[in-house]
Design a protein around this nucleic acid. Sequence first.
DNA 1: ACTAATAACATTTTT
DNA 2: TGTTATTAGT
Length: 790
Amino acid sequence: MELSDLNSAQQEAVLYCDGPSLVIAGAGSGKTRVLTYKIAYLLSQGMEPWNILALTFTNKAANEMKERIGRQVGLEKARRLWMGTFHSIFLRILHYEHEAIGLSSDFTIYDAADSKSLVKSIIKEMGLDDKTYKPGSVLSHISAAKNRLVLPDAYMRDAQLQKADQASRIPATGSIYKTYWNRCRQADALDFDDILLYTFLLFQHRPDILAKYEENFHFVLVDEYQDTNYAQHAIIWQLTQRRKRVCVVGDDAQSIYSFRGANIDNILTFQQLYQGARLFKLEQNYRSTQNIVEAANSLIRHNRGQIQKDVFSRKEKGQPVHLFQFYSDLEEAAGVAKKVIGLHRFDHIGWNDIAILYRTNAQSRTFEEAFRKQDIPYRIYGGLSFYQRKEVKDMIAYFRLAVNPNDEEALKRVINYPARGIGATTVSKVIDAASQQGISVWQVLMNPANYIPSMNRGTQVKLYEFVQLIEGFRAAVNDEDAATLGSRIAKESGLVAEVFRGREPEDITRQENLQELLDGMQQFVDDRQQEEGSERVLMTHYLQEISLISDLDESDDSSTEKVSLMTIHAAKGLEFKVVFIVGMEENLFPNQMSDNSLRELEEERRLFYVALTRAEEQCFLTHAQNRYRYGKSEFCSPSRFLDEIDRRFVQEDTSSAIGTRKRSASGFSALFDDDQPFGPRRSYGSPERMDLSRFTSIPSGRKVNTFTPSRVYVPETSSNPSDPGQYPVSQTQTEAGTLRIGSRIEHSRFGRGEVIALNGSGMDAKATVRFDNVGTKQLLLRFAKFTLVD
DNA sequence: ACTAATAACATTTTT
DNA sequence: TGTTATTAGT
């Protein structure tokens, strides 16, 4: 380990290990570096790796740190560290100590969707109106309570909470919470929040067990401390209260998860809780140019109540932050795409070094389409993760049942999938009986006639067969390894047969996903076996691993360079040479949902701060004057945040974009027009130049343009003088080309087929297509999603 | 009990 | 505009 790799502030933070310390690490100041060096330093001082606990928020951060430490001290040592996410480490502890807290050894984890579904059914069962009691919002109340370590009874006894719920006209929240709690217990299931809550309770009720862990963890490190919630904070306190050898690292200016319960006070009051805690500030930013750092500083100054710090850069001054205005969201995307091409082609910036950051996932679509049109390789982060896809969740539900048949949510998912004649009525009868008797659904299923006298013979037989099916899997759960059992379940449950029946493109994807899941299990088993030696890798181990994984996307293909598209939240912790922050408009960023309170506005501002500080060399801000929202075009004014950045660091490249050029050209085309019309030249927002030929009637056999852009402006015929004279019409085609009789196309839903007729004109142009698998269909070209084949 | 049609809905979301 | 959830229809 080379301490000389560190600046003096970093060194001090690494070397002080005798008591509690708080490291305030400005953006790009080498926070991860300090953590890894500190761990390496502790090891070099003779501390054993298993005496060190290092907690992160994401698997990604944990893995990255493991890898970096592995490089310094060797993989063998690194592997023995207690390093991982809060949830994974505590889940491990709960597995060891399950008995002490009255948990079954086979408990399973409810993911967010399971929790929501359970809350929803409870609301229904209680006969409450799900308009007043929105499952999502009730769940966030429950989650908030758990994160503050408030149990159901305490919730109902708490006068303040009761008053608040009364005022919000949701007085039953407490009793929903209680029922939810009981149902989870009956199901032997923990939700994400329970992992923290139960750990806290375990340590609180069993000082002997706490002492054991306290004894073991000689040093505790916590990353991203600004994002901890109260429960996490409390557990850290439990574990460190005696030795007080703890180092927390974070940046209050980058706290962007308070909506998930993160409490910024944890970091702000750390020094009061840990008397005499040393404070280290990492203020030198190694990531970004001076201009970017200064711009970000000037922005965040508008927040109050932060830990005073002075982040600076010694890199070159660099370019100012560029600001561009566009007429519409479509032009924004097209303009950004164009600029990206320019950066790549003329400035030789790699695709990997460019990121497009936006506030909401919905904004990704326009960029996706603009990039596809320009042949820019891109990768969208976020969206549905692998483990959230239906077929994968179904499969995992069977796995969960095999380990824990009481798992109500898993059971509900697959009791009639694939269809086996157990209808909704039967299922709700069974669930009602179970909750009436205070037993698990599975217990009812084992002896349905006993609990539901009215049940007819045929249904009983079907239920019996289902129970037998699951029992068959259960019998093997401690003998067969995860992969073997997994593929057996895939087959015997009928899931594979069900999914492999279809031949349509989406079916193929689903089949591939199932295959990937099974392959992944084999991989997991192989890896684990190598790591842990001879011990058998069981289904329960597999479930424990994947229950806390959100996106395994990393694996897909990092070989090819791609531009990254993601939300700002997803970008936290990452850095890129060039960053575009798009959609800088009021009501979008800051989001309109957060204009109720100063607190939320400040969080939005921190979010913008995070976005700005992702950039190493260049940063582009863009906003549009009109934007599609929920199908309608809306006027948008520039974000107030734009005015909050000191003018000295901004270059406004916008005046020429609007008005002067008939509001047709974008800011970028004014500046970067490289005379490269893309595709058939489409002049967005410039009706007078619109090529209308494709809207005229199409004699059969003649070529017809299938237009590329996602959306096209069509001139308004009976124009109203007060409006801009342009009406957006949606197009959803995916690829350009010409369509004629005999063309082969591939439709996103119907698969491949041949065009046998073309008719209609203008907006109504239709194609009749004989599909290979699904017969003949009429496609309205305006809407159809297809591509030309050959 | 399934599909088809329609209504409702729509931030961010490390685990 | 897109998705998703519920409802109606056979």
